[in-house]
Amino acid sequence: MPVFDGWCNHVDAPVGDHFLRVMTGQPAHLNAGIQATATTVPGHYASEEHVARALRRLGKLASAALIEEKLPTTNAIRSGDLGEIYATEWIDAYSGYRAPIKRLRWKDHRNMAMRGEDVIGIFQDPQSLRLRFLKTEAKSRAALTAQVLSDARAGLDKDGGLPSPHALSFISARLLELNELPIADAIDDALWKHGIPLASVRHLLFTFSGNAPDALLTAALQAYPGEADQWGVGLRVEGHGAFIGAIYDQVIANANNA
């Protein structure tokens, strides 16, 4: 079940040739959002197989410690990570693309942000086996501003608007480790054999904020002068900081009560 079900509503609107969706957490149902998100978060930091193996071999306390040691402790990193988690979950549930890895599993340190594109969604054409890409920048702020969206736009426009070779090589390497060979090979083919035309790339600007993102995302989409298709998706939750804190508290409580 998508993590947004049961506590968010959404409104879709065209912005010129682009697409805008605004999701709003319903105040009466935010506890359901906390519970659903807390169930989803651990898998973004450690594989289910890793946690289950630790539980079998080492017991509940050790498996809980494994999860807790991977969770960020600073408010800023928790906020940024959760924005990326929500973007990944939205892509997998609603976009038609697949986010093939959960990138946060490979963080250098739990209180450091990862570099590079936040998320890259991939769709493989079943006939040609060629790939289409959803290059994504995720921003999480208690108070979203035009400058934050300008920074996100700069990230999307890097490398001529294409996914960076470094980011795609990272995904390919992780997929090889996970024995997902066909999609890893398709990424390598796109990088080193076929090339990636801009027509095969769409941009997603994903925001998670305490204030309404409607007008800001609309302006950002309207101002885009380039040729890549654009999507804007904003998730608004009042009490943004307290909501994030409650989610991570619940993740820790769930791990200790497993």
Rank of each mutant, 00 (worst) to 15 (best):
M1I: 10
P2L: 09
D12N: 02
G16T: 08
H18E: 07
F19I: 08
F19A: 04
Q26A: 04
P27Y: 03
L30S: 03
L30C: 05
A32V: 10
T37E: 07
T37A: 14
T40M: 09
V41F: 03
P42E: 07
P42R: 10
P42I: 12
S47A: 13
S47M: 08
E48R: 14
E48I: 02
E49G: 09
R53M: 05
A54K: 13
L55D: 04
L55Y: 02
R56K: 14
L58Q: 15
K60R: 12
K60S: 07
S63F: 01
A65I: 13
A65V: 14
I67F: 03
E68I: 14
L71D: 06
T74Y: 02
N75R: 14
N75C: 07
R78N: 15
G83A: 12
G83C: 09
E84H: 06
I85Q: 11
Y86T: 07
W90T: 06
W90V: 06
Y94A: 08
Y94R: 01
A99G: 09
I101V: 13
R105I: 09
W106R: 11
K107T: 01
H109R: 12
N111V: 07
A113F: 02
G116S: 05
E117H: 11
E117A: 12
G121H: 04
G121Y: 02
L129H: 13
L129P: 00
R130P: 01
L134F: 03
L134E: 03
A138P: 00
K139W: 04
S140E: 05
R141T: 00
A146R: 12
V148H: 14
S150E: 08
S150R: 15
A152D: 02
A152R: 11
A154E: 13
G161L: 12
G161K: 09
L162K: 15
S164Y: 12
A167N: 15
R174S: 09
L176F: 00
L178C: 13
N179L: 11
I183Y: 08
D185Q: 15
D189H: 01
L191R: 13
G195E: 12
I196G: 00
L198N: 10
A199D: 11
V201N: 05
H203E: 03
L205K: 03
L205S: 04
F208E: 03
N211P: 00
A212M: 03
P213F: 08
D214W: 08
A220V: 08
Q222R: 08
Y224S: 13
V233K: 04
L235R: 01
L235S: 02
I244P: 00
I244Y: 01
I247R: 00
I247H: 00
Q250I: 02
V251S: 11
A253D: 15
N254Q: 13
N257P: 00
A258Y: 06
